[in-house]
Amino acid sequence: MESIPKNDCQKIGYLQKPHGVRGEMVLQLEDDYTESLEAYPTIFLEIDGLLVPFFLTKDGIRSRSAEAVLVKLDWIDSEEIARKFCGSSAYLLNSDLIFEEDEMTLHHLIGFTLIDSLKGKIGEIEQVDDYAGNLLLTVHFEGQEVLIPFNEDFLIRFDEDQKEIELQCPDGIFDDL
């Protein structure tokens, strides 16, 4: 069985907790992906390191707050079953993401070439994760996966047309490679 590569998906949040007794769950969102969820009712949950598809039931999404929605997934019909999935990261296919035409989001950085002001070209940004406001860019450099913290203070140049982002990466980040 072939799994969906994470590079083809964007993490949208995680399942926080069950809601009620019929299997509904709170999906804590990292950004506003509600329109994407309504248009494309397939989400992927990370289970044992693999992305597993789940389908929203008809009318399976309700707004709860600006940062969370209630979701109801096929085959999950009790609080007990829903509880087993709590804590799972949720993803959407990159091709299923809907953005406003001129809206730039973290997802758009995937595929950009990362350049360090001292080392030069590092590699292509493969993933962008937001851990409570701390952004990490995932790139491969000299055959190893490197997590590079992103902060506006590190930004030297951003070229959307060339798909390049130049940072002054923190000291020591490439020392052990």
Rank of each mutant, 00 (worst) to 15 (best):
T138A: 10
I156E: 08
R157W: 02
I12L: 15
D129F: 04
L177I: 15
M1C: 14
M25Y: 02
S117Y: 08
S36C: 04
V71G: 05
G123N: 11
L70C: 14
H140W: 03
M1W: 02
I156C: 11
L15F: 09
K84A: 14
F54P: 14
Y14G: 13
A82D: 01
G23M: 10
G172S: 06
T105K: 12
G120T: 13
G20D: 11
I115P: 07
D31G: 09
P18Q: 12
K58E: 07
P170Y: 02
D102N: 06
Y91M: 01
M104E: 07
F141Y: 12
F99N: 07
L147D: 05
L114W: 01
D48T: 15
T57H: 03
T34G: 13
R83D: 08
K17L: 10
G120Y: 07
N94M: 12
V26P: 01
F158Q: 04
K84S: 15
Q28D: 02
V26N: 10
F150L: 08
H108N: 14
L106H: 03
P53G: 15
E30R: 06
E145R: 13
A90R: 04
I115S: 00
L177G: 09
A90W: 01
K163Q: 01
D175A: 14
D102K: 01
G123S: 11
G60E: 00
L109T: 05
D102F: 01
P53R: 15
I81F: 06
L167E: 00
I156Y: 03
L135W: 09
G13M: 05
N134Y: 01
L51W: 00
F141L: 14
L93M: 11
F99H: 11
T57A: 07
V52E: 04
L136C: 06
I165S: 03
L73D: 02
L135A: 04
P5Q: 01
V139N: 06
L167C: 08
A82L: 09
G87E: 03
S3N: 09
S3R: 04
L51N: 10
R22P: 02
L109N: 10
